[in-house]
Amino acid sequence: MEGLKVAKANLKVYIHPSKSNQVSQAVLRELSSLLFTFSEILDGVVLAYDVNSLDTCAKILPGVRPYFGVKLKVNLLLFSPKPDTLLEGKVVKLTQESIHVVVLGFSSAIIAEKDIREEFVCKTKRGQDVYASKTNKRHVIKVGTMIRFLVKSFDDEILHVYGSLIPEHTGSIYWLDKSLEVVSHNDRIEKKRKNEGEQIMLQQHAVNGELSTLDTVQKRKNSKKLKHQKHNEES
């Protein structure tokens, strides 16, 4: 899943003088106020923070109330879905008109019917609406399915995502991963053939006396893997 990032931030928190005897508590409270809100400066929604270091010196602001600024270094976990990134979420409601998804348990996303690729058809199975793929019978999206979808836009006030299921690599994560496995399996067979070819090449290099130690290790590993694969295939 994309849209998550860790940011290191140098922050300055201004604390009310009445909290001068409990600075760290006040700092944490101030940081907590950032949670689940979109911050333009950080360009994302703060999901978690971790204070790295707290400056022991603070600058006092001149004024009626002498607020003081405490400098701190914080690691922030940010959620910033950008258009055309992939998000994952759980389907909570499915109607003919839309699929409602909750991402990471807090952000709601909607995929309107016009943004669902034509491959999917809404059917009613056992009294429950589902979106089933016309081409792959096993590719089904229903309430409770984890899906991967593309971000169309993001409303940073309500943290509402407008998504799309148009691209081919979107849909039920379970099915996508399964199909990926099939693909990778095919890949593996191809790789195997390639590897065999490479080995021959390497052997030729070795004959020429150009095989480095690193290559030897690599070769051993490859041969081990191959053996393992062969063993698996045989069994």
Binding site: F36, V92, K93, V102, G105, S107, S108, H160
Partner: peptide, 10 residues
């Protein structure tokens, strides 16, 4: 609240 988890906050 089920569909929009942050709705209760609003």
């Amino acid at each position: 609240a089920d569909l929009v988890p942050l709705a209760p906050l609003r």
